[in-house]
Computed example of a mutant assay.
Amino acid sequence: MATPVDPSNVDQLRAWDGNQGDFWTSRADRFNEGVAAYQDDLLDAARIDRAAKVLDIGCGSGQTTRDVARRAVDGSVLGVDLSSSMIELARGLAAREELSNVAFEQVDAQVHDFPEAHFDVAISRHGVMFFGDPVAAFANIARAVRPGGRLALLTWQPAERIEWMIKFRTLLAAGRDLPLPPSTGPSPLSLSEPDVVRELLSTTGFDDVRLHDLAEPMYFGRDVDDACDFIAEQHAWLLADLAEDEKARAIADLREDLAEHQTERGVLYDSAAWLIEARRR
């Protein structure tokens, strides 16, 4: 049965339940490794108690969902995502880890009929920036959270604070003037401006909105070869229109930059995220 989605999210469903979702399913471990430095901050902000009922929005392969389930041992956790392949992977990993208090569903959180005032906490690790109608989406999420319940989110900060985003696009653009992701609409940067976040959440049912500035290194691979393979695959759309000699030069430039970011812990680039906390009115 087709997943019901709001018309504004049809393109997102096509991407996340298509090639983009397949890519992140195959590279789930790399994504989890990449943002691992932010994980404990998010979980601590969520303040999960043993009996908590938790909603994980844009759960992907379910790493955060499973980590929460290990804290809410007497509660329950629901992870939701648009990607059927990631949901399938998440279910398999939860079963392998013998977690009986976790479930996964392929739904559009913007319109899904969650039980009203059911969850104690709603969380998301870089999964809420892509709604076609964020006001409707967060109003729906608020409806699902009990009064006094909590919201804990990770979103990216503006691009100038995210070294890897600017570097990779610049290097793989090969001299072309390609724009960064927009700060409006479905985009990694749609919740990067604090005033936008505060207004959005305060008008959709949340109070006490706080943004905490986090800056952590992002991991892209154990060495230059490993990181280059991953980044070139992730950004294949940037390379697709280049002639072969241009593509070779772009990859060579990327490899040179990766070598400059090689550390004992692997290839690392700076990044910055907002840890957003709020309370359901």
Rank of each mutant, 00 (worst) to 15 (best):
A227H: 05
I141E: 11
E264V: 08
D17H: 04
L89G: 03
D245I: 05
A278P: 01
L153E: 12
N19F: 06
L172S: 10
E246Q: 01
D6Q: 04
H118L: 06
R265E: 15
L211Q: 08
A122S: 07
Y269C: 02
R279V: 15
F206S: 04
A139E: 15
F31G: 00
T155S: 15
L99C: 09
H126Y: 15
R150H: 13
E88A: 08
A215E: 14
A173S: 14
G79E: 14
L189H: 01
V54P: 09
E97C: 04
L239V: 03
A28D: 11
L99R: 09
S61G: 15
P147D: 14
E199D: 14
A240W: 01
A273N: 08
V54W: 09
Q110G: 08
V196Y: 04
E264Q: 06
G221D: 13
A215C: 03
C59F: 10
V111A: 10
L258W: 12
D223Y: 08
V10I: 14
V209K: 06
Y269K: 02
S85P: 03
W24R: 01
P4K: 09
F114G: 03
A240F: 05
A95H: 14
S26P: 00
T263E: 13
E105Q: 10
I57T: 03
E116D: 15
E97Y: 11
L42I: 06
S8H: 11
D108K: 14
R91E: 15
A69D: 07
G34P: 09
E256V: 04
D6C: 02
A28V: 02
